[in-house]
Design a protein around this nucleic acid. Sequence first.
RNA 1: GCCGGUGUGUCGGAAUGGUAGACGAGGAAGACUCAAAAUCUUUUGUGGGCGACCACGUGCGGGUUCGAGUCCCGCCACCGGCACCA
Length: 803
Amino acid sequence: MEKYYNHHEVEPKWQQIWDDEKAFATSSDFSKPKYYALVEFPYPSGQGLHVGHPRPYTALDIVARKRRMQGYNVLYPMGWDAFGLPTENYAIKNKIHPKIVTKNNVGRFKNQLHSLGYSFDWDREINTTDPGYYHWTQWIFLKLFNAGLAYKSEMPINWCTSCKVGLANEEVVNGVCERCGSEVVRKVKSQWMLKITEYADKLIEGLDGVDYVERIATQQKNWIGKSQGAEVKFALTGKEDTITVYTTRCDTLFGATYMVMSPEHPYIDKYQSEITNWDEVVAYREEASKKSDFERSELAKDKTGVELKGITATNPVNGKQIPIWISDYVLMSYGTGAIMAVPAHDERDWDFAKKFNLPIIEVVAGSPVPVEEQVYTDVATGTLVNSEFLNGLSVAEAKAKMIEFLESKGIGQAKTNFKLRDWVFSRQRYWGEPIPIIHCDKCGYVPLKEEELPLQLPEVDSYMPTDNGESPLAAMESWVNIACPCCGGPAKRETDTMPQWAGSSWYFLRYTDPTNDKALASKEALNYWLPVDWYNGGMEHTTLHLLYSRFWHRFLYDQGVVPTKEPYAKRTSHGMILGENGEKMSKSRGNVVNPDDIVQEYGADTLRTYEMFIGAFDQAASWSEDGVKGCRRFLDRVWKLNEIIVDGDEYSTDLEAKMHQTIKKVSNDFESLKYNTAIAAMMALINDFYKKGSVNKAEYATLLKLLNPVAPHITEELWQGNGFEGRLYQAAWPEFSEEKCVESTITIAVQVNGKLRATIQAPKDGDKDAIIAQAKEAAAEKITGTIVKEIYVPGKIVNIVCK
RNA sequence: GCCGGUGUGUCGGAAUGGUAGACGAGGAAGACUCAAAAUCUUUUGUGGGCGACCACGUGCGGGUUCGAGUCCCGCCACCGGCACCA
């Protein structure tokens, strides 16, 4: 063998052999135990692979390779989430068809991933822009449509001024477009919507049965934002109409001293003639409509509002006349668009009441400070007062009693609300899945027939988005105009396309049976492979992709298409890789590291090892070129063990315990995201080999097996070079025995009054009294006075307590 | 404001309530070399002592325990998410 590890030769050599041998092809033998490991498929951007990509890919590659060695039939697939704006923008700028751009980018990404030695099953590669794939994305859409979960609605949407598309709420971050950072304004448009809200409860419940890291589950729950309360009807004084409000504090109903409606509330126009200060109201409404949602909520904590003079409401529990105000702190899009204001016990109402000098009535006693001076919102300790039949009750009791009362009188009822909104599902863009719907003036929205799928994306002359908010497809009259499938009359195709999230909402299903043209996947394949056993991805997708795909999956379960309620049994997420200066990598900061350069200079195995060794997997980590070198040094030292290999079929006695300990540690750590300590344990092991001056074949073989999932090329080369049989990737994962993890002679720490004073050597199953005696002798000088207590923790420590 | 998370050498980071700082990086000294790089050896928390050793050390203040980085109570700082959601 070569004296030094030459990654330029060894790595391509094994990549070629694995390809030729179809080493990582997934078996279709459904009688074997299966394991489905999944990483988020990338968007093939023009920049190529980022140094952040290999972190999760390597982590699950380790799991996949280990599972194969343990005898599982492993599915570890890869594909391309290739529809999307950057590709389309690039195509527009450079006048190349997005299809070509995608093809080029995919080619580059694939080469890069290949050069890192991942054990993906490339026979199952998928691409969301492939008509054979989006056939089924469209099919799912039709299912949703037929189930009444897809609908078209005129509504104010988030409109990105730069991308010229509507955005889902989840895509608006701090009032700007998540993707391009441009300003987002409200624009009323007719949009396709998906009723994800109908699944809000199911999406919360589903979290109970799966193993997600805590903060992912919490973030999803917060995003869905379930709250339990009541709807209460307030009569408009002297009118038939009632104003319904939503409240989570119906116990405080006696303290409601005014009402507030959203400036968009329909009753304002309805009662225009009764409102005596109409000019003022109109002016306020105009002011509010100019503000984006962001400005209304983030920047305007200072309360503003106008009273609707001329009309009042009646508090249903005590008959009091209370004024009605409008204010933009009440949102039309949540609850009923109107609230009852209880200034004594709600912070926002308190601020508003103070500003406009409205009465504050205490109905929950227990505040150390008068409610005129400070709002009192504690629900755990207060007692109801000034509330007739609720007096003396706790908040929780009062809520229950009030709901009972409201329901018996028919003036209100218990009600659950969610923050989650329906999903804006149409984009006015070219490079996306066409929505398979035809609009006929007579028949309304008519779905395409299943056998007409896929509805292919037509060739257009220009992909430019239009300023009037129409998709580029709208200009293609020959495509747009079509006979209605229902009545045969003139009709038009839908010209909006689906958002990027469509294709990624079900891709993990397609991997199980990627070329099926009769169904999105066969029943057999779905039954065998689902759920995904371990899914790793970015934290940034928690309220986007992860929630959307759970929604689609649960819907498909309800439709009898998939066999499990939840798509992913386990979800973890990785931290970001930051630049050397601790900042996010970006061109403008000049701290970008290109993975190709690292592979070229140090090799793929070094990059893989380094990214796993860099720190806790779920936390952000800064890049360090020195750290990369350290990992290369480790691999070189593994290589150079060649020089001190001796024969031996069994572990040598002095290293036996260490071998078993290391197998145990590495095996466990690979399962629990602790890749850094697994690698540290292997480093410590080879340090021991060098200290001893030799390593026997049995020990060496075990080391290679343990390291193989992390650094597959070098270990495979060493396996072959040292004449071990077969391929390392087919070898069996090493076993350990709990018993043999313990050394025959152990070191025991001796403490006196909790302070370390000595260490002693003792046999592993040494007698307690003998060990204590030995300990006393070793620490004799430190023991003063009388001994009060002697503590012995087997195998670890002796503590002598004296006074 | 609410919900999560984090706080340990010069740096990245290890430690089922049981020898704090594994492993790596960096620094220092030495070997090899004409020299450098690479490699190898030794050393490296702080303070004190020639020394075997001693004292102090895991954001701050208390507590529980024979024993606390780890558990409990009260703070502080930073990071992430949500946020006028009634």
